[in-house]
Design a protein around this nucleic acid. Structure first.
Length: 919
RNA sequence: GCCCAAGUGGCGGAACUGGCAGACGCGCACGACUCAAAAUCGUGUUCCUCCGGGAAUGUGGGUUCGAUUCCCACCUUGGGCACCA
């Protein structure tokens, strides 16, 4: 067998490869894929071009974390579609950036390194090299000139640089943006904190701009502070700040984790361990300052609705009012108890108050008679885990303090209770309880025999006696109801009561409109070795950031990097590293969320050692046009990256406010064989420990990368989770074999005689261009492969109809090879060359243009129904008028059998679709 | 408990805006080629049927000339949230 590839003359695309009785050359993916991969790499074919007149397109995969297991076919579900999109846009003349890098710091690598007793840096190099090898094996068109690794100091230097920007910035509620901390110092020297606190009172959305602990001080008080006091004071403003708080401690990884990394069951995201509460001093980013913008700007992105909803829920914006109650008697008499409520319209229905067990006032108001009971309760509550405390299925608990509070709207004294269903971390840690209109308060009131007073009379004739209610009536915007038992609000309809109540409270000086967010600040420090060192020095004057010219603060090499039990990083055991001329280095490192919060920008100027990136480059390429990855990052990376983008925008470093214009989530791929778990057959995730991982290496070795790529796309809808089907790849492989044969040796063997005209072939070809374009745009890759399979089948039929010598045949084959190029780039390149074209099909504008006239149908087949049931079909000219089509439909034999001489009640014609005859 | 998504042949799935249900592929069956097998090619493949048809897109209702598609209730699976005042 002597393969002889050559192109024919005159631009004809007929081939005769074989002479005499030699067999045709078979499709050999192993050979051609290796050949083209090498050539593409040698030529840097996919290098991103500099900014030019073409429209740009930035298509990006989530930052992968290189693990020792390497890539499975499940990972390829992410990388193949983005590669198809990158190639599709390139072929249509866009300037495309399609880069890759590695999120290399973090616990899994460090844990593996500890286990294997090797250096995590070495392990990381090995793992990422393996990823690169696998990416190349798949024929992915990354620009390898831009690859970087977040654990290299050439990268993390800039992560530290951004950290110091956050540290040296604060959020000005008046401008609704971040500003340099030096400007805050100037303001404090001139005006104290008054103007800032006033602004927050006037614009309730800004509640999270600064710490809630900031006191009202005047300029003199600021000026009188020593430097160390000033620095401590400023911590309440900085966007990167250190404070003592209750944090989630992961006892398995021996590290603190962020709220976003703990699931509803209280388990840590990576280790799966139940987290414990610890009070520790930790570094945080003030993401609460951005809560409002993070919610608001979700309107501007093209993301899956569920991810948008998850972020909205996580941020949890709610609007209401803060109202000041006061202690009615005892030593603390007159002292204010501030509550937050979203239902100020129910203020007159408050029959008791509840304080969180951690509320500072509890110890001071409790009466001697109740002290023992209250102390015991508070202690017990403190010992319960958060998950346990927030388990809604358990009955509410609580204890009376013996004290009373005065309700500012009606002067009533109501009992103050302590209960752990009120959280210190939300609102003010204290609530007014309105059992008639809040189910939680209702349950509590019924259990402890507290009064229930109705203040909203709903529609219908429900009793106005709270004692008879069986459940809280929580509606307030339904319209029909009216206010009762509510002093000045009596008789008002419920739709207006809310704003009227806030007005009333503001008028009497008892409170004001307020916004609250569920989101808490983002805990970033980790007590581990393998991360970006936090560039801070602890000096006698407090914390100061390491100056730019001293960055990076390099991670020292160490002999032992095992985590400690004490909550201290292994770096703390290196005195020569810790002790610096001006002070002690911070020994915690940053969680990898910091690394991944800006990497997408670095691709615009990946190897710049002078600055973080050239602003022209970053503003040209960003935001990312298409971002693809798993849905598990909904409130982690995708939220964090948005905050950093907004900070950098505020500081004038970039000029876009959202990092990712469009986002798509791919579905998971599960192991092919279901297994019995708890008596049920289930498809499991692929994992090395279960021994059910299918690697791209194996699939490529037997069927080639193009077949694997095709099947990754074809397996299911892109976003659907689906088990792998071992027989699927051979199916796609068969299709590619057919493509190979129909292009190179169409005459070789024939099927049954068929009929097809040249006009029809041309129509199918151009319709296929339209279908594939539409499917790619919709991320419907499975149907794009179907369309190409159908097209290939049509070409075999056209061959059997004797069309191979015609110009339409040559055009049809040319279109086929171009259309498969994004999916099967190696085969397309090989066929392209053999067809006599110059290298490369992947360079320049090579996507075919659909000819709408050619794609148009001359005749259409119209189904005909009688009473909604299909009875016949008629073929009519595409431009036939309605009357003619109806007449043809009625005359159709299959229709006449049912209609006979019965009168026609109605004949419905849907243009180009169907006729329905009603009798 | 609340919110969201999804339930279509033996399997993965398709069906653009309410208009031919099951495209495309897998699997299976039969046939051709072969000494035989593989590969390839061809035919068939939702179910029932008295071969006229009838039934069918999780279940039950509704709207409509017409419903996989819209509405209501319920069931199942997956995901998210879980006392946030």
């Amino acid at each position: 067998m002597v393969p002889r590839a050559h192109s024919s003359l005159n631009g004809r695309v007929g081939f005769s490869f074989f002479q005499g009785d030699t067999m045709s050359e078979r499709y050999n993916p192993t050979e051609i894929e290796a050949k083209w991969q090498k050539r593409w790499l040698d030529d840097a074919l996919y290098r991103t071009d500099a900014a030019d007149a073409r429209p740009k397109y930035f298509v990006l995969d989530f930052f992968p974390y290189p693990s020792g297991d390497g890539l499975s076919v499940g990972h390829a579900r992410n990388y193949v579609p983005t590669d198809v999109i990158a190639r599709f846009y390139r072929m249509r003349g866009y300037n495309v950036m399609h880069p890759m890098g590695f999120d290399a710091f973090g616990l899994p690598t460090e844990n593996a390194a500890i286990k294997l007793k090797v250096n995590p840096a070495d392990l990381n190099e090995k793992y990422s090299a393996n990823y690169i090898r696998q990416f190349k094996l798949l024929g992915l068109s990354y620009d390898w000139g831009r690859v970087f690794n977040s654990s290299h100091d050439s990268y993390y230097r800039w992560t530290q640089w951004i950290f110091t920007r956050l540290f040296n910035s604060w959020y000005d509620p008046r401008l609704d943006k971040a500003r340099p901390i030096s400007e805050l110092e100037a303001e404090l020297a001139a005006h104290g904190t008054g103007r800032i606190l006033d602004a927050i009172d006037k614009t309730p959305e800004q509640i999270g701009a600064i710490a809630r602990t900031v006191p009202r001080i005047d300029a003199a008080a600021w000026t009188a502070m020593a430097r160390r006091e000033k620095n401590a004071f400023l911590m309440q403003f900085r966007l990167a700040f250190r404070n003592e708080s209750v944090v989630n401690w992961d006892p398995v990884d021996k590290v603190v984790v962020a709220n976003e990394e703990v699931d509803a069951q209280g388990r840590a995201w990576r280790s799966g361990a139940l987290v414990e509460r610890k009070t520790l001093k930790q570094w945080n980013f003030r993401i609460t300052a951005y809560a409002n913008r993070l919610t608001r700007d979700l309107d501007t992105v093209n993301w899956p609705q569920r991810i948008v909803t998850m972020q909205r829920n996580w941020i949890g914006k709610s609007e209401g009012a803060e109202v000041d109650f006061s202690v009615a008697e005892g030593a603390a008499a007159g002292e204010r108890i501030r509550i937050y409520t979203t239902r100020p319209d129910t203020l007159w229905g408050a029959t008791f108050m509840v304080l969180s067990p951690e509320h500072p006032l509890v110890a001071r108001i409790v009466t001697p008679a109740q002290r023992a009971a209250v102390d015991a309760y508070v202690e017990k509550a403190g010992a319960r885990s958060d998950v346990d405390r927030s388990d809604v299925s358990k009955e509410k608990t609580g204890v009376f303090t013996g004290a009373h509070a005065r309700n500012p709207v009606n002067g009533e004294a109501i009992p103050i209770w302590v209960a752990d269903y009120v959280l210190m971390t939300y609102g003010t840690g204290a609530i007014m309880a309105v059992p008639a209109h809040d189910q939680r308060d209702f349950d509590f009131a019924r259990k402890f025999g507290l009064p229930v007073r109705r203040v909203i009379q709903g529609p219908g004739a429900a009793s106005s006696d709270g004692a008879e209610m069986e459940a809280a009536y929580a509606e307030h915007d339904e319209g029909d109801g009216h206010m009762v038992n509510s002093g000045p609000l009596n008789g008002m309809d419920t739709a207006h009561a809310l704003s009227a109540a806030i007005d009333f409270v503001e008028d009497i000086g008892a409170g004001q409109r307020r916004v609250n967010y569920k989101i808490r600040d983002w805990l970033i420090s980790r007590q581990r070795y393998w991360g970006t060192p936090i560039p801070i020095l602890h000096t006698p004057d407090g914390e100061v950031s390491v100056p730019d010219e001293q960055l990076p603060v390099r991670l020292p090499s160490v002999q032992h990097y095992e985590p400690t039990q004490t909550g201290e990083s292994p770096l703390a055991a290196l005195p020569e590293w810790v002790n610096q001329p001006g002070g002690r280095r911070e020994t915690d490192t940053m969680a990898t969320w910091a690394c991944s919060s800006w990497y997408f920008m670095r691709f615009a100027d990946a190897h710049n050692d002078e600055r973080i990136f050239d602003p022209t480059q970053v503003n040209y390429w960003l935001p990312v046009d298409m971002y693809v990855g798993g849905a598990e990052h909904a409130v982690l990376h995708l939220l964090y990256a948005r905050m950093w983008t907004k900070v950098l925008y505020d500081l004038g470093i970039i000029d876009f406010i959202e990092p990712f214009k469009s986002l798509r989530n791919q579905g998971m791929i599960l192991a092919p064989e279901p297994r019995e778990v708890d008596g049920r057959m289930v498809y499991e995730k692929m994992s090395k420990s279960k021994g059910n991982v299918i690697t791209p290496d194996d699939v490529v070795a037997t069927h080639g990368a193009d077949a694997l790529r095709g099947y990754e796309l074809f397996i299911s809808d892109f976003s659907q989770t689906v088990p792998w089907n071992t027989n699927g790849v051979p199916g796609v492989r068969r299709w590619l074999d057919r493509v190979w044969r129909i292009v190179l040796s169409p005459e070789e063997d024939r099927g049954a005689p068929a009929t097809m005209g040249a006009r029809e072939l041309r129509r199918i070809a151009h319709q296929t261009i339209q279908r594939v374009e539409r499917d790619f745009d919709a991320f419907a890759f499975n149907t794009s492969v179907s369309a190409l399979m159908e097209y290939t089948n049509a070409l075999f039929k056209a061959r059997d109809a004797g069309l191979t010598g015609m110009p339409e045949w040559a055009e049809a084959i040319d279109i086929l090879v171009r259309l498969i190029a994004p999916i099967a780039p190696h085969m397309a390149e090989e066929l392209w060359q053999r067809m006599g074209h110059s290298y490369s099909i992947h360079k320049g504008v090579s996507w075919p243009t659909a000819d709408a006239a050619a794609a148009r149908e001359d005749e259409i087949e119209v189904p005909v129904q009688v009473n909604g049931k299909l009875r016949d079909k008629v073929v009519v000219a595409a431009d036939a008028d309605e009357a003619a089509i109806k007449a043809a439909a009625i005359a159709a034999p299959g229709v006449q059998r049912f209609v006979g001489d019965k009168p026609l009640r109605q004949v419905i014609y849907v243009k180009g679709r169907l006729v329905n005859i009603v009798i």
